[in-house]
Design a protein around this nucleic acid. Sequence first.
DNA 1: TATATTATATCATATATATGAATTTTCATT
DNA 2: AATGAAAATTCATATATATGATATAATATA
Lengths: 257, 257
Amino acid sequence: MSITDQKFDIDRESKTPLWLQIRNELYNCLYRDELRPGQLIPNEKTLVQLFDVSIGTIRKAVGVLEKEGFLIRKQGLGTFVFQHDKSSFLFEYFHFALNGSNEKQSPNVEFISFDTKKATKSEANEFGISAGSPVFQIYNKLGLNKKFYIIDKIVIPQSKFPGLTEEIFKGRGNTVYNLYQNKFNIFITNCSEKLKAISADEKISKLLNIPLNDPILKVDRVGQTYNNETIELRTSYVHTSDIDYIQSQNSTFGEAI
Amino acid sequence: MSITDQKFDIDRESKTPLWLQIRNELYNCLYRDELRPGQLIPNEKTLVQLFDVSIGTIRKAVGVLEKEGFLIRKQGLGTFVFQHDKSSFLFEYFHFALNGSNEKQSPNVEFISFDTKKATKSEANEFGISAGSPVFQIYNKLGLNKKFYIIDKIVIPQSKFPGLTEEIFKGRGNTVYNLYQNKFNIFITNCSEKLKAISADEKISKLLNIPLNDPILKVDRVGQTYNNETIELRTSYVHTSDIDYIQSQNSTFGEAI
DNA sequence: TATATTATATCATATATATGAATTTTCATT
DNA sequence: AATGAAAATTCATATATATGATATAATATA
């Protein structure tokens, strides 16, 4: 169903502000995939008619979704649905930079392996599937400046990625999140990460060509989609002798001025 | 000079939007300390008169400063200048939680040492002072649930904290950033962090009572004030066997709905 | 055809105004 | 003094409208 075809009923008696009701309706359109990544959404005038509110209320609703990262407004052009690509990946999800630098640069990625295995208990628990269900486990090597510093292990449930093969994965030609989005209709909306320092085990030391027991930064990332459904478990093993995990933070989460 | 006494000249011909000009004027009042932490700022009606614009423009300017974290609006009460305290510290700057938990809890802090030393070259460089200038170096131990997992090393230039003594530091009764703010008029506006995995050296292993060479998460934080002036260099050494460094991230930096 | 101009579409800024919601203050009543 | 109702204060939501800025499309002109 197209967004312009449906009848939204906004409750003017509700305690929830109109702008928030509209924001939620639009969010649901994203969730229901009636507004697809990269797509141009109806202009403000149309939205005014669709929801029968003033343009200021529409702008507030759309503005919030823009700040949340779901929509992107372009003056003179229109408002578009956000889509994952290399630059957004670099900006939002890749947290590493060479020693002494604060500038991120795009990592080079090299494929290592693609396997099917049974989900561990904790993986199954995270995904909300039964233990032993099949999952894909994929290893990649990431580097900067021709050297590799990071091993990425990706675990995703087979059920959510029907038909995914090693060839499709290798031939994606873009970021992994872009693959999820374009080939499997899964849009990663939020991530959380947990970091630990550990010792390199045999596997990691071989893959990264570093001494056994070297200190390694281990990053566990949970990638989720709408309604906090977990889609991907990613573990990065980072040899931080030459690169840093960086995080910048304003007093809050303010917009850049 | 009080904010209500001065004449702001807003340039209506400027390419910079009015709301941004006003946001910048208010920001400068914060910077010049004419609006102090915790203080109630003039209400919207007064600001309308002060800047001679409509209330919508004022609300936009104040709204941005609120999102940036400098102001806090409270319906029915007024708008206040943000101040550092324990809850904001927990919310924004303390990134650790016990294994398996996503809930942060307030750490307990124990004083270790307070010394004066000469700035290293890199410290001096960061602070913009000459090498060898005196700095304070303070060690603390942080823990959760009666056990200590973190050693914090704080380095701050003596010149910016005149009269600071071990007694004042120990008797602060609040967070360190609150001390900076209330006793020394220095307001930390933003931080950036760089993380590495290293091996515990002798000093750290003794302080945390862990084996030598255990993997340790090292967090280097640069704390800055207005105009990106560096105020504090803090290094945290974290034994991550029982706790995680956690980071959550929405698709962007969206406001909570 | 190539270029410059004009028109159109779309979001951005700004004003003016009305009503509602949340909090504190005031003040009458008990 | 304690309580409760009313008033005042302040920010929040919502409408209506006008003008500006930016990008694209259409058109006229050389």
